[in-house]
């Protein structure tokens, strides 16, 4: 017994080192699996506040590009509106939302794209009815999925995250596959499991497939950069060039699918 106590006392710093190492390795492993990083995330008031303050300064540097981007989107939406004869009301009836999807605008206060598992932080939280598993898009296409929230801030799993899996499809045919990221380039993501029979052409548009109830069908992702057969020789592996410049993001929208609880319920009863 005495020897054990002596051993512990002699090696107390090494044992303390091992203990802390176990904790940090545990946290690391947790962060490498989807939706597990519960404790260590930047959606808390201190880190959120720091990023918010820094963003309130740095957002001025990109004002011009951001304005151009918003103007471009406005023009696109207006042309859609006038060409399809949708009744353009000047007011929004906020007591009854028609349709399945509601949108919330948010601002990215922390961007990251050089790691393997990138997370963004936005300045809206559960107070603005942001919940886990809502989709996040920008004017040019898909950004990611909400992970953790607190009252004022939320973290977003970027599409540049190796744990992320989103269902995507070809725009012109309905052949679908899984969008994931291999961690190499912040401009390219990978679309896998596309059937060999699909006719792929360089430059074809890839959109979301609407299978997961997170994103509606037809949100833009990118264009085909190149493709090859994977090791099984049955499926294509496609490199998709993103429409979004992930290194320069500011204004985003969070999409909520009102029917998602119903769909989830149904899928749960099927299992």
């Amino acid at each position: 017994m005495q020897q054990i106590v002596n051993f512990i006392l002699r090696n107390k710093s090494f044992l303390f080192f091992l203990l802390l190492l176990c904790v940090s390795v545990g946290l690391t492993i947790q962060s490498h699996s989807y939706h597990k990083s519960k404790f260590i995330n930047s959606a808390n008031s201190i880190t959120g506040g720091v990023y918010n303050t820094s963003n309130s300064v740095s957002s001025y540097f990109g004002l011009k590009q951001e304005n151009d981007k918003l103007h471009e989107e406005n023009t696109r939406l207006r042309s859609l509106l006038f060409n399809q004869n949708i009744d353009a009301k000047t007011f929004i009836d906020s007591t009854s939302f028609k349709g399945r999807y509601t949108f919330t605008t948010a601002k990215i206060i922390k961007n990251s794209y050089s790691l393997q598992n990138n997370y963004l932080t936005i300045n809206k939280g559960s107070r603005d009815s942001i919940k886990q598993d809502l989709g996040v898009i920008s004017s040019k296409g898909i950004i990611g999925i909400i992970d953790n929230t607190n009252s004022k801030y939320a973290t977003v799993i970027s599409i540049l995250n190796t744990t992320n899996k989103i269902s995507g499809q070809l725009k012109k045919t309905n052949q679908f596959g899984t969008l994931s990221w291999n961690g190499k380039s912040s401009r390219l993501i990978q679309l896998t499991d596309i059937q060999k029979s699909a006719k792929l052409v360089k430059g074809d548009t890839i959109v979301t497939s609407g299978r997961s109830a997170i994103f509606p069908k037809g949100i833009l992702v990118g264009t085909i950069e190149d493709f090859k057969l994977d090791v099984t020789k049955n499926f294509f592996e496609v490199n998709v060039l993103l429409f979004n410049d992930m290194t320069n993001l500011e204004h985003v929208s969070v999409i909520e699918n009102k029917d998602k609880p119903l769909i989830d319920d149904l899928q749960k009863t099927n299992e």
């Binding site: 940090s24 720091v50 598992n117």
Partner: peptide, 16 residues
């Protein structure tokens, strides 16, 4: 790590 949303990567590196 908390700022970077990176789990325990920096913690283990700093500890080592």
């Amino acid at each position: 790590d908390i700022f970077m949303d990176s789990g325990g990567i920096n913690a283990s590196a700093a500890l080592v």
